[in-house]
Design a protein around this nucleic acid. Sequence first.
DNA 1: TCACGGATTGAATAAAAATGCAATAGATTT
DNA 2: AAATCTATTGCATTTTTATTCAATCCGTGA
Lengths: 157, 157
Amino acid sequence: MEQGNIVKKRRHMKILELISSQDIETQDDLSELLRIAGFEVTQATVSRDIRELKLTKSADENGIYKYTISQSEDDKSIGKYGFILRETVVSCEKAHSLVVVKTISGMANAACAAIDHMQWPHVVGTIAGDDTIFIAVKEPEDVKNVVEALNSILSRA
Amino acid sequence: MEQGNIVKKRRHMKILELISSQDIETQDDLSELLRIAGFEVTQATVSRDIRELKLTKSADENGIYKYTISQSEDDKSIGKYGFILRETVVSCEKAHSLVVVKTISGMANAACAAIDHMQWPHVVGTIAGDDTIFIAVKEPEDVKNVVEALNSILSRA
DNA sequence: TCACGGATTGAATAAAAATGCAATAGATTT
DNA sequence: AAATCTATTGCATTTTTATTCAATCCGTGA
């Protein structure tokens, strides 16, 4: 129950990818695109996903509606990257002088990009596999700080 | 029907005030509140107003939907909130160690929300009544800076 | 003043989104 | 493994929102 449903998380990520790469006007359109991408879902599920992801539909400058990632106060400090981490990271632990992050299958690269984007001063390098990320830090004592920083992001609403 | 162009602008401002001072779930609820406030409108008009104001409906932390002022135009947000301030603020003055802002009647909440969105570092707190806002700042000398910042926004074209 | 033209609006309706319910998939405990 | 939860989902339906169409309003220029 801590980890949740993997398929659902993958679908959520796909939804974020879809709405940030193209204009989507309706939930039906979105579920059709998800179906093409291999996610068999109905509009009802998309509606629930949208509530959980706190997506918004609003008019653009031409008055055309489209779904967008909302920028709530919470997200503002870390942007949508923190959001991606919360959606993909399963665990985050100290391992000797490295930080080892586990993600849901296939999501390590997305999560790693998010971590890189943070530009934390103590982080000197990252490597992403399929579901694992290694984070190298400057000093051994930085490991603890990075783990704490990550957990802080992961625990936000 | 005594509705006109100016009435529409006033209604738009009233909508901004309403959604920034309370949680509103549906357009029907909003049109009911507008009716109470003296604006006789149907849901159809509210739908159009919402498109024009680029408002969004999204879930809060509890999954309850409510209408909010869009932050999708974060680059232009100063302009957007500045617009609200210019439309509502009557005066802005230093009062001891506070900044006191007077607005047209009933608009303090909308204006206060706009000020809050500026996220000025010197501002530590705000309180809005019906037509008055108190702004608390960190240091006494910050009062002057905030008054100047506000006046700068108010004097823009 | 009167006629014209664009804007605004309400009523009705179409379109889109949210939800109650039941089935089932997954996890947890015994 | 069986029993028991909890979470997820689709279907059907309700609720909510957007739009169409016609009427009315407002400003403008003759």
